[in-house]
């Protein structure tokens, strides 16, 4: 299987070339086009109960689609948001993705839902996070550009900009500054992450866009 992320960074999509016998799992509604000889099968996103949990708390869809081919073919996988996509490869390790970030993975990757804690909730990052583990490639997307950072000590990320992180990263919610500057700087609450480990971030936040739009609606 060959996969290439095209039209980076604004309107990224994955162009996948499947060899005979290959398969790829993608989020429901992620397929934009595909060869006619690729077969698509839909299944619960990791079992009935966990699919419901993932839908309710993880921002993922109830179903995932598995694309397989006996003769080979290609397909294009995309995401709803205008923004970049990236890929990491698991070698038995685990990664956490924020709700909605997951797009596709190889069938050897396990999808699960992990408790993120109240700090994550208060920090605007949700009560749960998607846990990807096993071996294989995972593709994920973001709103705006994606940038990563290897951090060792504490690092501050504004609400809504976190996309994915290593399990070795700890999350704490905190104020961006003092009480006055936290409330009047527009930064409010932030997520303080502590390494060692890698974090993936997005250059735009949907919450920021929604607030900007709402402010101009009236």
């Amino acid at each position: 299987m060959e996969a290439e992320i095209a039209d980076k960074p604004s309107f990224a999509h994955i162009r996948v070339k499947l060899d005979p016998g290959d398969s790829i799992v993608a989020e429901a509604d992620a397929m934009a086009s595909m060869s006619s000889d690729i077969e698509m099968s839909t299944r619960w996103n990791g079992g009935f109960c966990s699919a419901i949990l993932r839908r309710v708390f993880g921002g993922e869809s109830l179903f995932v689609n598995e694309f397989t081919t006996r003769t080979g073919g290609s397909l294009v996988i995309t995401q709803a948001l205008p923004g970049d996509m990236d890929c990491f490869e698991l070698d038995g390790n685990t990664m956490f993705l924020q709700p909605g970030a997951y797009i596709a993975c190889e069938p050897t990757v396990k999808l699960g839902l992990g408790w993120a804690g109240f700090a994550s909730l208060i920090g605007g990052e949700g009560l749960f996070r998607l846990k990807v583990s096993g071996t294989g490639k995972v593709w994920f997307g973001a709103y705006g550009g994606i940038f990563s950072r290897d951090i060792d000590e504490e690092y501050v990320i504004d609400t809504g900009h976190l996309v994915g992180y290593d399990p070795s990263i700890s999350l704490k919610v905190g104020m961006s500054g003092g009480i006055f500057s936290s409330f009047f700087s527009g930064e409010g609450l932030v997520t303080r992450v502590k390494g060692p480990g890698k974090v993936y971030m997005q250059s735009r936040s949907i919450g920021g866009l929604a607030a900007w739009t709402n402010a101009r609606m009236y």
Binding site: Y165, S168, I169
Partner: peptide, 16 residues
């Protein structure tokens, strides 16, 4: 000790 779960143990050499 730290990480997402708070239970991960990091063993580091002096210069990290």
């Amino acid at each position: 000790m730290g990480g997402s779960s708070g239970r991960m143990v990091f063993c580091r050499n002096a210069d990290k």
